[in-house]
Structure formats: structure tokens, C-alpha cells
């Protein structure tokens, strides 16, 4: 049963993509059925979806990197560093993602100049940063939790072998944490991917924005509402469900061991 459901999403995706490719050659049909319209615009819509995935991947990469650093500060022996990191972590973990996105949009300049070189910061880059902030806070907390879950006897054993604190963390504790972190980390990625549609609110041309534009271009027909947005739903489901499924599987496997 699970084996079957796992193979379904890729097959459906393939069908959609084939449809999308062939629809281009057919030209605009009149009068258009809902399906024909979805097929006609599919390349554009899927392009938007690819942008969502790009934003989610970059936000996850950036956030994970920053979160890892923040997480290390959370387990630091320096009280001040630990407290500061804790405050940062709590702040970004308990702020609505959309609010953080707005902050990123309006507080980050549209370009920065570094040593005479002007680097433009388009809206989508700002969106990446906006989404990376909650990822950072959550990754830091996931790391902290994983470190706390390692038995204290591992610290004792490492200490009694004269390993320094830094060596203990990097050689003994963290390598055991990665496996424990993986399910939560993947779950966070699925959540971030779904959250990327919020970027439409601040005008990034991701899938939801394009879906609305397509809907308007087709005259705003009410009968197109469900098929067009349904298509967006389907794309996200087909992308996120396998991640969710893998997460559950990994969690089961790690629990058994």
C-alpha cells in the first residue's frame, strides 16, 4: 500500500509536464474548457512553482547554515553568548513568518554597495532572507534539542579521554545529532515550501502570483477559479507529500533502532 502511493506522485507529475509541453503547440483553443486553459498556462504556472522551490531551497540552505551557528551558540559554555542566542532564537521562532517576510521586504535595501560594487537585491532575494530567518531559529532549536537528547555519559566519556570541549562537540556529540535532526529538518523544509506562497503578498512572481495573473488574463471567469488554484494545490501537494512521507518513514526507522 505505501509502495503504491509513493509511486503515484512522480507519475502524475510526469503526465502534467507532458501535457504542459504538448499544450504549447496546440495554440489557443476557443471556446476553452477549464482543463484546456490549465494546460495552456501550465508552463508559465510550473515556472512559477519552480521559483517557489528555488526560494524554499535557498531559504533552507541559508537558514540551516545560520541556524547551525546559532545552535552552536545555544550550547556554548559562555553564558552571555548562550543568552543572546537564546533571545534571537525565541524572537524569530515566535514571530509570524509573514511578518518576518514584511520586515525583510521593507528593511532590506533594494541594492547594496560593497567596495564599489553594487549588488542588486531583487524582491525574491529578500523573500529568501525573510524565510531564512524562521528557518534559522527553528534549526537552532532542533540542534539544541538533539544535543540535549545525547546522554550525558557521552560527554563524560569524551571528557575522561581528555578531549577538549570543542573536540567533544565536533567529534562525539554533533555526529550523533545529525541523524536525530533529519526528520524535524525535513518537516521544516516542507513547511517552508508551503509558506513560500506568502511571497505573493509582497509581489514576488511565484506560483500564486502567476495563478492570479492567469486568472485575470482569462477574464476572471469564476469557473476557472477552482481549476487554476486547484492546479497550484496539486503541485504543492505532489512536492510536499513525498517529503512528509519520507520524514515519517525516517522517524519510524530511527525509533526502532
Amino acid at each position: 500500500m505505501p509502495r503504491l502511493s509513493r509511486s503515484v506522485p512522480p507519475v502524475l507529475c510526469a503526465i502534467l509536464i507532458v501535457y504542459a509541453g504538448s499544450a504549447h503547440a496546440l495554440g489557443p483553443p476557443t471556446p476553452a474548457s477549464a482543463l484546456e486553459i490549465v494546460i495552456k498556462w501550465a508552463p508559465l504556472l510550473l515556472g512559477g512553482f519552480a521559483f517557489n522551490i528555488l526560494i524554499s531551497l535557498l531559504a533552507m540552505a541559508l537558514g540551516t547554515l545560520a541556524g547551525f551557528g546559532l545552535g552552536l551558540l545555544l550550547i556554548s559554555e559562555q553564558v552571555l553568548a548562550r543568552r543572546a542566542a537564546w533571545s534571537v532564537m525565541q524572537f524569530f521562532r515566535n514571530a509570524p513568518w509573514l511578518v518576518l517576510l514584511f520586515f525583510a521586504m521593507f528593511l532590506i535595501p533594494f541594492r547594496i554597495t560593497v567596495m564599489g560594487v553594487t549588488i542588486p537585491l531583487p524582491d525574491w532575494v529578500k523573500a529568501v532572507i525573510g524565510f531564512a530567518l524562521p528557518v534559522m531559529a527553528n534549526v537552532a532549536e532542533i540542534l539544541r534539542g538533539a544535543v540535549a537528547s545525547i546522554p550525558s555519559t557521552q560527554w563524560e566519556a569524551a571528557e575522561s579521554l581528555a578531549l577538549s570541549r570543542r573536540q567533544t562537540v565536533w567529534l562525539v556529540i554533533l555526529p550523533q545529532c545529525f541523524k536525530r535532526m533529519l526528520p524535524s529538518w525535513m518537516n521544516l523544509y516542507a513547511l517552508i515550501t508551503m509558506a513560500t506562497v506568502q511571497a505573493s503578498i509582497v509581489g514576488v512572481s511565484e506560483m500564486l502570483t502567476i495563478t492570479a495573473q492567469v486568472h485575470a488574463a482569462e477574464g476572471g471567469r469564476t469557473d476557472l477559479f477552482a481549476p487554476l488554484y486547484g492546479f497550484a494545490l496539486l503541485c504543492f501537494f505532489l512536492y510536499c507529500y513525498p517529503i512528509d512521507y519520507m520524514t515519517a518513514r525516517l522517524e519510524r526507522r530511527f525509533n526502532v533502532r
Binding site: Q154, E156, A157, E159, A162, S164, V172, Q176
Partner: peptide
């Protein structure tokens, strides 16, 4: 210097405490 001390003193625990990875 705890590390200098522990270089001279080996310790074996009840629960072995090997590094599982």
C-alpha cells in the same frame, strides 16, 4: 589543566559509554 590530568588518568564506566557512531 583538566586535559593534562585526564591524559594521565584513564577511566572505564559501568555503561561502557563507547561512541556509537
Amino acid at each position: 589543566d583538566k586535559l593534562a590530568l585526564r591524559r594521565k588518568v584513564g577511566m572505564v564506566f559501568q555503561q561502557y559509554n563507547l561512541f556509537p557512531h
